[in-house]
Every structure is written in structure tokens, then in C-alpha cells.
Design a protein around this nucleic acid. Structure first.
Lengths: 85, 85, 85, 85
DNA sequence: GTGGTCTAGACCACT
DNA sequence: GTGGTCTAGACCACT
């Protein structure tokens, strides 16, 4: 009955926020540390969640700068496949 | 007739601004690069001017962070001596 | 005059501790974050100090695990060259 | 997998240029700012690349003046150790 | 106007 | 939760 991993749960939460239009355009999302703090999870969990969102094409990450919302137009077929999981 | 060096001129300008209460408290002043640009002088000149203001006790500088106005109460005898030059 | 940089000062402090036999054998040293906190410097400055100690052969670092004192016997020619600086 | 860091990539590029005989003798290389601009990296990343080349004995740097190609004859044991990495 | 040091704070890779 | 890389942008030391 393996229940949903924490990172998928967090990914779902963030995906909803992104799809609903929070963090429009190239807006920077909260940092790994902030999200880890807010959701009481490890940074590793946040990273895994973000990793999924990158694969979804919903965000992109820039070393040393942050994680940014990707324009809605850039959604690929990979993301639709994934979101049905 | 050696005329006033550029750095003393700039120091005087900044001193006036500081004494008149601009940059109150611990406010950060413009950076070396910004002042060099604004006054059309080299950064070396800005540095010399700031060096005088540090000696006056009007500003203090923090490596990697910036130059900050010092509280008016911290004025020492060194600054009064210097300001009569 | 060129005063001693903060990272060299810290390296010297740690080197003394290591040479005097604290952190014997493969003992783990404080983390970058801890030292940054204790010595009121940035993590990068701690890293520069550690970098020197690695070159000296006094410590070795393992990603994800920490920084460890190296056995005294492992001193190399590189370290002797450096210590004469 | 641990992909090659940007600074090592840049170091490799510059090493190739140096070994192939561009920047002969004591010729000055581009400045940190110029390379940062050209390769779209931060100045610190350029510095890390140069740091490796200094360790290789391929260049030497003089504060206030620039970075210079070192004569090929000055190769030391430290550099040969490094180049096998 | 160059290289040297330093900060604050991101993400990355590994454990 | 550690060390590794990277950014952007300050001031410092030297020429």
C-alpha cells in the first residue's frame, strides 16, 4: 500500500500553485531552505519535488540564483504524461 | 598654488551630505563604482575620499558589504581637527 | 603592509590546533557552518582556510560527510613547501 | 555522474590555448572581467580556473597588473601531478 | 584598472 | 545535513 512519498506530495502542492498562476512568468520561487522550513521536510525532499517540476517544464533552476517559474507556453508532452501519475 | 586634489573635493561634498543628515544612521552609501561614475573620477579617488571620511569617523566600511554612515554621536576629536583643513 | 587575510588567520588557528594534536587521527572537525558561525566569517572564508589545510596535508574532506584530521605520517613534500611561507 | 564544473571546463579551454602556444612567453592574458564576460560566468569562476592554471605552472598572476603566460621551461613536479587528474 | 578578499545566499552532489 | 559550485556585487591592495 506504499503511500505517496513526501516529495510527490510537495510536488503536487507546488504544481497546483504554479498551474493556478501564482509565481507568474519568471518569478522566483521560495528557496529550498524556505520550503523545507515551511513544509517541515528535508531539503532533499524539496529538491526531489523541484526535480519533478523541472521535468514537468514548470520551473527552471539557475545555480547560485534560484528557482523560477517557466512561462506556461513551454509546457511539453512530458509534463502531461507525468501529471497523470 | 597646488589646487585641491579631486579626492578632497569629493570628500568635502560627501562630508557635507553626511553632516546635513543625508544617509542617516547605518544607511549604506553609494558604492565606489557608483560614485566614480557619478563624479567622473577613478575609483582610487573615491577610495581616498572615503579614507578621509573614515578617519573623520563619519562612515565605516565593511568588506564585501559596503560603506555605511556612522551615528553622529561617534564623532571624535580627530574628525574636528581634520575638518578644519 | 598587506595585513593577513581572515582566511589565513583562521587557517593558522586551525593548523595550530591540528599540529598540537587536537582532532587526533581521523576525527571529524567542526563543519563549515559551525566555524563560520564561531569565527564570524562567511562560509567561503572557512572554505579558503580549509583549502590551505588540505594543501598542507593536515586534513581531508569528504563531500556529504565532513572534514577529517589526516594522520601525521601522511605529510608530503607539498605540505613542507607550503609551511615555509 | 558529477559533471565537470564550469571552472574546470574553462581551465581546460585556457590550458589548451596555452599549451598550443598562444600567449607565448610573458604575454598578458585577458582579464578576469573579460573572460567572465566572454564565457558568461562570474568572476569567481574565472578565478577558480586561473587558480588551477597557476597550480599547473602555466600562468602567474600579478596584482594590479594581470595574468601572464609562464615560460614552458618552468614546469614543476606539482604541475605534472596535477595534469594526470 | 588589475587581481585579492570577502559577503550573503542560492542550487548541486553525495551520504 | 555535509561539503562543492556558483552568482552578484561589495571593498582592498597594488600599479
Amino acid at each position: 500500500m506504499t503511500r505517496e512519498p513526501a516529495y510527490r506530495q510537495l510536488a503536487r502542492t507546488l504544481r497546483n500553485a504554479l498551474v493556478q498562476g501564482r509565481y507568474r512568468d519568471g518569478v522566483r520561487l521560495p528557496t529550498e531552505a524556505e520550503l523545507a522550513d515551511e513544509y517541515k521536510v528535508s531539503r532533499q525532499t524539496v529538491r526531489r519535488a523541484f526535480h519533478d517540476l523541472v521535468a514537468d517544464g514548470l520551473v527552471h533552476r539557475v545555480r547560485g540564483r534560484g528557482t523560477f517559474a517557466t512561462h506556461a507556453t513551454a509546457v511539453t508532452c512530458a509534463s502531461s504524461a507525468r501529471s497523470t501519475t
